[in-house]
C-alpha cells in the first residue's frame, strides 16, 4: 500500500495514497462538520461543509471525495472557509422548518451539532418557512419533510446497502424533495423492507421511528 505524506494546517500526516482527504484530516486531529457524508455510503460532496483549501487548487475542494496525494498542503480553518461553513448551515436552517425546541431529534441531531460547531448564533438569511408535509403512512416510521435537508443518505443507504431503492429525489432547486417509490405514500411502497436503515442514517429528525413520536389524533379546533 503506497503511503503519502501531506500537511493539514501545517501538521504532517501519512495516509494511504488515494484515500479521501477526510482521512488525512482525522489523522491530523481535525474534525469538520459533515452532513451528507457517511462512512459506509458512497460520497456525494453535496453539503459542502467539508470544503478545505488545497494549495494550488483554484477553489476549495470537498475533503470527502478528494484523493490524498503526496505533498498536498491543506488549510481547514481559514476565515473564508469559516464564513462559508456558517452560511451553508444557515441556509439549511432557513430552507426547511427546524424549530429545534419541538423536534424529536433535539439534542441528537447532526444539523444542530453542525450549527454549534460553526458558531451559528442566529440565522442571518430570511427563514423561508416552506409549507411541507408529514408522511405518516408507514406503520413503523415517519417522514417529516420539514426537517429534511436533502442530504440523500437515505437514498444511498437504501440503494447501496439494503438494495430496496425506496427513496429518490424529485423536482429540482428549492423545490427538491425526497420521494418514496414513485412519489407514493411511504406506507404504500411495496419494495420497502421496513429495515429502518434510512432512519438510522438520517442526520436530522426527518426520518424517525414512530415509537419516538407518540401520535394521537388531534381532536381538531
Amino acid at each position: 500500500m503506497a503511503v503519502v505524506t501531506l500537511h493539514v494546517d501545517g501538521m504532517a500526516v501519512a495516509v494511504p495514497a488515494g484515500a479521501p482527504l477526510l482521512q488525512a484530516l482525522t489523522a491530523a486531529g481535525v474534525t469538520l462538520p459533515t452532513l451528507c457524508h457517511h462512512p459506509r455510503l458512497s460520497p456525494v460532496a453535496a453539503c459542502r461543509l467539508c470544503l478545505v483549501e488545497l494549495e494550488g487548487a483554484p477553489r476549495p475542494v470537498p475533503a470527502c471525495v478528494t484523493a490524498a496525494a503526496e505533498g498536498q498542503r491543506l488549510a481547514t480553518d481559514t476565515p473564508a472557509l469559516r464564513q462559508g461553513r456558517r452560511l451553508i448551515v444557515e441556509l439549511l436552517f432557513a430552507e426547511g422548518n427546524h424549530p429545534c425546541a419541538v423536534c424529536v431529534a433535539d439534542g441528537d441531531c447532526e444539523l444542530q451539532d453542525a450549527a454549534q460547531r460553526v458558531g451559528m448564533d442566529r440565522v442571518t438569511v430570511p427563514y423561508r418557512h416552506p409549507p411541507r408535509q408529514v408522511d405518516a403512512s408507514h406503520p413503523l416510521f415517519l417522514l417529516d419533510h420539514h426537517r429534511c435537508i436533502l442530504c440523500s443518505r437515505c437514498v444511498r443507504v437504501c440503494d447501496e446497502i439494503e438494495g430496496a431503492h425506496v427513496w429518490a429525489m424529485a423536482e429540482r432547486g428549492g423545490r427538491t424533495r425526497l420521494i418514496a417509490g414513485l412519489d407514493q405514500p411511504w406506507g404504500a411502497v411495496d419494495s420497502c423492507t421496513s429495515c429502518g436503515k434510512c432512519v438510522a442514517v438520517c442526520p436530522t429528525g426527518a426520518l424517525v421511528t414512530r415509537e419516538d413520536v407518540p401520535l394521537s389524533p388531534w381532536p381538531g379546533p
Binding site: 436552517f93 422548518n97 424549530p99 419541538v102 448564533d121 442566529r122 427563514y127 409549507p131
Partner: peptide, 12 residues
C-alpha cells in the same frame, strides 16, 4: 432568536 413555535404559522 429563531421565531420557533411562534413562527410555525408562517408555513400556512
Amino acid at each position: 432568536v429563531t421565531g420557533n413555535v411562534t413562527a410555525l404559522r408562517n408555513q400556512h
